[in-house]
Computed example of a mutant assay.
Amino acid sequence: MTGQFGVWSPGNSISDAMLPIAAAIFVFDGIVQNPDRKVDNPNCLVRGEELRIFDHEFAFAHDLMVGWRPPWVLGGLKWMETNGNHIFRAGLKGRAIDFDPIRDAWAGLSDDKIKDYQEVLPVEWVDVAGAAARAADLIREARDHIDAVLEEVKRVLS
């Protein structure tokens, strides 16, 4: 990304204008099980009130983890409880966050839209079809349990 974006650093703070998108990113990373947006590896660019995230290579590895719990189960986001394990946790903790737009966006994901996500993968990537199907299943289940996901997020941020 060009155009004077800088890398998110520990010195940055989440302004009121950034709060909705920072919360949405936090929920997204929790759902897709992306443990790689942490203080020492932010994978986030900032320009004024704008945020851009990138590098999701560790997302959707949930089926490889022993003892994994879905993000809609109590303790499913335990890994996000420690400051530093996600760049936005400390800045979101204790803030008044309106989760309704996040809930509505996730609840509004249709099965067809989720299927579209799978179908945009290049045909040359046939060896990842199983992983893509498992990722789509996780997205679908998170959508179906979005209220419980948001309760777990609120617990982590309380």
Rank of each mutant, 00 (worst) to 15 (best):
F5W: 06
A136Q: 05
V126M: 08
Q118A: 14
A131M: 11
F5M: 11
R155D: 07
F60T: 09
D116P: 00
N34I: 05
A22S: 12
L121T: 04
R89P: 07
E81C: 12
V120L: 11
R47L: 03
W106R: 09
I102G: 08
A96K: 14
V7N: 11
E124H: 11
V149L: 10
I87C: 03
S15M: 05
F88V: 10
D116G: 09
D63C: 05
G91I: 13
Q33V: 14
L77N: 10
L157N: 07
Q4M: 02
P71Q: 05
D127M: 13
L51Q: 00
L92N: 12
N12H: 15
L109Q: 04
F88N: 01
P42W: 03
V73H: 05
W68C: 06
L64I: 06
V66D: 14
V149H: 03
L157M: 05
I25R: 06
D63V: 06
V27T: 12
R52P: 02
V128P: 04
E50Q: 14
F26W: 02
W79T: 08
R140N: 07
D29A: 10
F58G: 01
V27F: 05
N41H: 12
A61N: 13
F26E: 00
D100S: 15
G67I: 05
I146F: 10
V153R: 10
N41W: 06
G67T: 03
D40T: 13
W106T: 04
T82A: 11
R95S: 09
L45G: 06
V156M: 01
G130I: 10
P70W: 01
Q33K: 09
F28Q: 06
G91W: 09
P70T: 15
D29W: 05
G91K: 01
M1V: 02
F60H: 08
K78M: 13
E141T: 08
V153H: 09
S9K: 13
I21G: 03
L109G: 04
R69E: 04
R95V: 08
P20Q: 04
A136M: 00
D127T: 00
F58Y: 09
H62I: 10
N85W: 11
D111V: 08
E152L: 08
I102P: 04
F60S: 08
G130N: 14
E124C: 03
D112A: 14
I14A: 05
A96H: 14
P20F: 06
R69T: 00
V73Q: 10
L45I: 00
T82D: 08
G11S: 13
W125A: 15
N43P: 01
I21N: 12
E81Q: 15
G84V: 06
E119V: 12
R155W: 08
L157V: 03
A22Y: 04
D40G: 07
V66N: 11
A148S: 10
H86E: 02
F26M: 01
R155E: 04
D40V: 07
A24C: 02
L157E: 07
L109K: 08
D40Q: 13
P10M: 09
R134E: 12
A59K: 03
P71E: 06
I114Q: 02
V73K: 11
L19I: 09
A59I: 11
L138D: 02
R37W: 07
A135W: 04
I25N: 13
W125V: 05
D104N: 15
I25T: 12
W106D: 02
W106G: 12
